[in-house]
Lab assay of single mutants.
Amino acid sequence: NSLAEAKVLANRELDKYGVSDYYKNLINNAKTVEGVKALIDEILA
């Protein structure tokens, strides 16, 4: 998966839960796919 794909999928996942734009910005600023995954795990914990 590319970083861009990971960000799109992460933001879709956040949308399902009604997560605020603050967290979407964190996702969009992530530098690695692993970073995106770690943020998602933390946000949805």
Rank of each mutant, 00 (worst) to 15 (best):
N1F: 13
N1H: 14
N1Y: 13
N1A: 14
N1S: 13
S2I: 12
S2W: 08
S2Y: 08
S2D: 14
S2G: 11
S2H: 09
S2E: 13
L3N: 00
L3F: 01
L3K: 00
L3Q: 01
L3Y: 01
L3M: 02
L3D: 01
L3R: 00
A4G: 08
A4C: 05
A4Q: 13
A4V: 09
A4I: 09
A4W: 15
E5M: 12
E5R: 05
E5F: 08
E5P: 02
E5T: 09
E5I: 13
E5V: 13
E5D: 11
E5S: 04
E5A: 07
E5K: 07
A6S: 05
A6K: 03
A6E: 06
A6I: 14
A6H: 09
A6G: 02
K7M: 06
K7S: 01
K7R: 04
K7H: 02
K7L: 06
K7V: 04
K7I: 13
V8E: 15
V8C: 04
V8M: 14
V8H: 13
V8K: 15
V8Q: 14
L9M: 14
L9W: 15
L9F: 08
L9D: 12
L9Q: 14
L9A: 15
A10K: 00
N11I: 15
N11C: 06
N11W: 15
N11K: 12
N11Q: 14
N11A: 10
N11E: 11
R12T: 11
R12Y: 11
R12D: 04
R12A: 15
R12S: 11
R12V: 12
R12W: 11
R12N: 12
R12H: 09
R12L: 15
E13F: 14
E13M: 15
E13H: 09
E13C: 10
E13I: 15
E13Y: 14
E13P: 00
E13T: 14
L14W: 02
L14F: 04
L14E: 00
L14P: 00
L14K: 01
D15V: 09
D15L: 09
D15T: 11
D15I: 08
K16A: 09
K16Q: 07
K16I: 06
K16G: 06
Y17N: 06
Y17G: 02
Y17T: 04
Y17K: 06
Y17S: 04
Y17C: 02
G18C: 05
G18N: 11
G18M: 09
G18H: 10
G18L: 06
G18D: 10
G18K: 09
G18A: 04
V19G: 13
V19D: 05
S20Y: 04
S20N: 10
S20A: 12
D21N: 10
D21F: 07
D21S: 09
D21R: 08
D21V: 09
D21I: 07
D21A: 14
D21E: 14
D21Q: 12
D21W: 11
Y22F: 11
Y22M: 09
Y22K: 10
Y22A: 08
Y22C: 10
Y22P: 03
Y23S: 02
Y23M: 06
Y23I: 03
Y23V: 05
Y23Q: 04
Y23N: 03
Y23G: 03
Y23W: 14
Y23A: 04
K24T: 06
K24E: 03
K24R: 14
K24F: 05
K24P: 02
N25M: 09
N25R: 08
N25V: 07
N25A: 14
N25W: 10
L26Q: 07
L26M: 09
L26A: 10
L26H: 04
I27G: 00
I27F: 03
I27S: 00
I27W: 00
I27H: 00
I27Y: 01
I27T: 01
N28T: 08
N28H: 08
N28G: 07
N28V: 06
N28E: 12
N28C: 05
N28P: 01
N29M: 12
N29A: 09
N29P: 00
N29G: 11
N29F: 07
N29K: 09
N29W: 04
A30D: 01
A30C: 13
A30R: 03
A30P: 00
A30Q: 12
K31A: 14
K31G: 09
K31W: 10
T32M: 01
T32V: 02
T32S: 10
T32A: 02
T32P: 00
T32L: 02
T32C: 03
T32E: 02
T32I: 01
V33G: 02
V33R: 04
V33Q: 04
V33H: 06
V33A: 05
V33I: 15
V33S: 04
E34Q: 09
E34M: 10
E34A: 12
E34W: 06
E34C: 05
E34K: 05
E34N: 05
G35N: 12
G35T: 13
G35F: 06
G35Y: 10
V36Q: 00
V36M: 04
V36F: 02
V36W: 00
V36S: 00
V36G: 00
V36A: 01
V36H: 00
V36P: 00
K37M: 15
K37I: 12
K37Q: 09
K37N: 10
K37Y: 07
K37E: 07
K37F: 13
A38M: 13
A38V: 10
A38R: 12
A38F: 11
A38E: 05
L39E: 01
L39R: 01
L39S: 01
L39M: 07
L39I: 13
L39H: 02
I40E: 03
I40F: 15
I40L: 15
I40G: 01
I40C: 03
I40N: 01
I40P: 00
D41L: 13
D41W: 10
D41S: 07
D41Y: 12
D41R: 13
D41N: 12
E42M: 15
E42G: 08
E42I: 14
E42D: 10
E42V: 12
I43S: 02
I43M: 05
I43F: 11
I43D: 00
I43H: 02
I43Y: 10
I43A: 10
L44N: 04
L44T: 08
L44K: 10
L44Y: 07
L44V: 11
L44M: 12
L44S: 05
A45Y: 12
A45K: 13
A45R: 11
A45H: 09
A45C: 07
A45F: 13
A45I: 10
A45N: 12
A45S: 10
